[in-house]
């Protein structure tokens, strides 16, 4: 079992994983606030969880299938209706491949 005291939480690094550009003031603020939250949630490290199965859903249902029948999807104009930018019926983004 790993000890939580080894765990290193760095808001600046995690914000890059999460694709959010944080201001230095936000990094400082979140670091302080979330350090306290993590200190609190670390209490679960004291529980003995040997042989306890994890719960992903409170009442799991398995292998939910439906008949494989073609159905109409969202029409293209509706799917694009909320796009911040579109060009000839496509979502437009800055050039990705040079």
């Amino acid at each position: 079992m790993s000890s939580h005291s080894d765990l290193h939480f760095d808001v600046s690094y995690v914000s890059k994983l999460a694709r959010i550009a944080l201001l230095p003031s936000e990094i400082n603020e979140f670091q302080k606030q979330l350090d306290r939250v993590l200190e609190h949630v670390n209490q679960i490290s004291s529980l003995n969880l040997e042989n306890v199965e994890p719960t992903a859903h409170a009442h799991p249902v398995f292998n939910v299938i439906r008949p494989d029948e073609p159905q109409a999807g969202l029409p293209k104009d509706q799917a694009l209706a909320n796009a911040p930018r579109q060009i000839s019926g496509l979502f437009a983004v800055p050039r990705v491949i040079e």
Partner: peptide, 8 residues
């Protein structure tokens, strides 16, 4: 771990 505590 949290998912296991959820079971408890």
């Amino acid at each position: 771990r949290a998912q296991k505590v959820r079971t408890l």
